[in-house]
Amino acid sequence: MIRLSNIYKSYPVGKERLQVLKGINLEVQKGEMVSIMGASGSGKSTLLNILGILDQYDSGEYYIEDTLIKNLSEKKAAHYRNRFIGFVFQSYNLLSYKNALENVALPLYYQGVRTKERNKKARNYLERVGISEWAHHLPSELSGGQKQRVAIARALVTQPKMILADEPTGNLDSKSSQDIMDLFKTIHNQGVTIIIITHEKDIAEQTERIITIKDGIITN
């Protein structure tokens, strides 16, 4: 499903280049729910950016199903992000002046889906994450847990090949965190591939498989 082989990535730091990823090999099967763990500076965020087609890598190969994700134009990258990946961020990243429904519908707008169809789908996904009664509220009127639910609905609405969640519970209290993890599990049971990047052990332990990254290589 998702295959990374020998991924290298470095960043320029002054005159030197800082090698961040030193040959990442990783496979995630369809329908798997995995977590990627690592301390800060381990290369975890860089890996996330590459997985999310937000950043390029220097060498190696990255496949999503049979599509090679390499040296894409901005337009092509945007297209694949839209079709293949659903993002869930630590700070939710909802658009503050759009209500929950409009936020969920936004990725479909970039697919050129018509308004009516878009709203129907968005409503459906808000229902699936259990906050359909908040559809017309602005993010500022929602709690952290509710915002993250909206974000998850937005990630799901395009029916992507994977959900990429970056510290999805980082801003939440333990009760809300557990609710969000339960939601992820439910979605997982419906057959969605989920990759959670976290540094919290108890979150990682709720996934099927923990991938640990340290100093730019995967240790397990």
Binding site: E74, A78, L95, Y110, Q111
Partner: peptide, 16 residues
């Protein structure tokens, strides 16, 4: 900036 970043992550092409 952040909003534009979010839009891009959600699949907005530069021309849009």
């Amino acid at each position: 900036t952040k909003e534009i970043g979010i839009r891009k992550a959600l699949g907005a092409v530069p021309s849009s």
